[in-house]
Structure formats: structure tokens, C-alpha cells
């Protein structure tokens, strides 16, 4: 088996490198887009308008209550039909599906991060005459960021693993690489092991880095 692994690596190693790059690219784009949109969604959920709050909550619940794979299928097959004019690439459809999914989770992260800031901070700011927006910007959000940032990094790690589902559509990520090599060589275990080790190394290193970041932020209080 070890021989096979070495053979696969020497012959198809470059495919894994390409796969790793696409996985990271996909995950990065997703986490960046969903960080921005998720923060906006979290803020919208605090709106004074009931319909706005209702829509945002409904969105979060629907996303969290349906499987990601189903969402991927939905966007992959529906989006090009719904808006044919845009000529969306497969990659774009997958990105949109992943962002659609991740936004809901990021919104919850941001909401929890704001919620974890002591209510007294907002009250003190308001009692001085600051508007709720000023209090949010100058007092609450800077404190919430300390809760939000590590959780967002963890979301990034989760997305890295979730992108593997997108290999259903052969978009070239690590899992797609496995499928490709399996097609060439009919080997199963060996390319799977290699893919697993790559995933593990990336997520392990990132998790450790996040934990270190978190410790540092706590210390700077």
C-alpha cells in the first residue's frame, strides 16, 4: 500500500496541489463574502421593522434546517435556469450556494458575539447621550469583535471541510482530485488517505493558530 501511495503521489501529486489550492480558494471566497453579508444580516435582525426581522430569522432557520448538499444541488441546477443571462459558471454557482449557507451561520456568530457584550455597556453609552448607532460603533462592536473573530476563523475551518461536498460537481477541489485519481487508477484507499491527510493538516494547523490568536486576544484585555 505504501508503494501505491508513493506511486500515486509521484504521478498525481500535482493534482492534489491543484485540488488543495481550489479548496482553499473556494473556502476563502466563501468565508470573506459570508463575513460581510452575515454581519449585515445580523444587524438587519436587530431592525425595528418586524417584517425585516421576520425575513432574516426565516432565512437563518431555513438554511440551518436543510442539508448543505441539497442547497448545493438547488443552486447548481436552478441558478443557471433562473438567470440564464448571467451565464454563471459552475464554480460561481457552487460559491453562491456555499455563501448562501454560510451567511446564516456567520449571522448567528455575529449575533452571539454582540449578545455576549454586557448589556450595561450599551446602557452606559446611551445614558451619556450617544445614539444607539454611536454606542454600537464605539463601544459594543469593538468588544464584540473579540468574540466574533475566533468564531469566524472556526467557521473558515468548517467551510474547508464542507467544500468537499461540492466535489459532487467535479469543481476541482481536493475531493474531486480523489475522484479523478480513482478513475485513472481504480485505487480507493490510497488517494483517499492522501486527501484525508491534506484536509487534516490544513484544519489542524489552522485550529491551533486560532487557539493561539484567541489566547492572545484574551490576554490583551
Amino acid at each position: 500500500m505504501l508503494q501505491n501511495i508513493i506511486k500515486v503521489l509521484s504521478k498525481y501529486g500535482y493534482l492534489f496541489a491543484d485540488g488543495l489550492w481550489i479548496t482553499i480558494e473556494l473556502s476563502l471566497i466563501t468565508v470573506l463574502c459570508s463575513s460581510v453579508l452575515g454581519s449585515l444580516l445580523a444587524i438587519a435582525r436587530r431592525s425595528r421593522l418586524l417584517p425585516v426581522r421576520f425575513l432574516c430569522t426565516a432565512y437563518v432557520e431555513v438554511v440551518r434546517g436543510t442539508p448543505l448538499l441539497l442547497q448545493l444541488y438547488f443552486f447548481y441546477f436552478m441558478l443557471p435556469n433562473l438567470v440564464p443571462a448571467l451565464k454563471l459558471s459552475e464554480f460561481t454557482c457552487v460559491v453562491i450556494a456555499l455563501v448562501f449557507n454560510s451567511v446564516a451561520y456567520v449571522a448567528e456568530i455575529v449575533r452571539a458575539g454582540i449578545g455576549a457584550v454586557d448589556r450595561g455597556q450599551m446602557e452606559a453609552a446611551r445614558s451619556l447621550g450617544l445614539s444607539s448607532k454611536q454606542a454600537m460603533i464605539h463601544v459594543v462592536l469593538p468588544q464584540a469583535v473579540k468574540n466574533i473573530l475566533p468564531a469566524l476563523c472556526n467557521e473558515f475551518v468548517a467551510i474547508i471541510k464542507e467544500t468537499s461536498l461540492a466535489s459532487t460537481f467535479f469543481i476541482g477541489d481536493i475531493m474531486t482530485t480523489y475522484k479523478t485519481i480513482n478513475g485513472f487508477t481504480f485505487l480507493i484507499i490510497e488517494p483517499l488517505l492522501i486527501a484525508g491527510i491534506i484536509y487534516f493538516c490544513v484544519t489542524f494547523v489552522l485550529s491551533k493558530a486560532i487557539a493561539a490568536l484567541e489566547r492572545k486576544m484574551k490576554a490583551s484585555d
Binding site: 454586557d118 450595561g120 455597556q121 446602557e123 452606559a124 453609552a125 446611551r126 445614558s127 451619556l128 447621550g129 450617544l130 445614539s131 464605539h138 463601544v139 469593538p142 468588544q143 484585555d221
Partner: peptide, 28 residues
């Protein structure tokens, strides 16, 4: 908000701004 500017409030649990320095707490 305009009226609150003229009413100072001191809380049981202080509620000083944790993200700001002592001086910034006063000047914000």
C-alpha cells in the same frame, strides 16, 4: 438622546467602557 446628555447616570456595576482607556472613557 439630547436630554440624556444633561442627565448623568452611575450604575451599580460601573459599566465603564472595557474597550477604552481610562482617559478615553471620559472623553468619548
Amino acid at each position: 438622546d439630547a436630554h440624556r446628555q444633561k442627565m448623568g447616570m452611575v450604575f451599580q456595576h460601573f459599566n465603564v467602557f472595557n474597550n477604552l482607556t481610562v482617559k478615553k472613557n471620559i472623553t468619548l
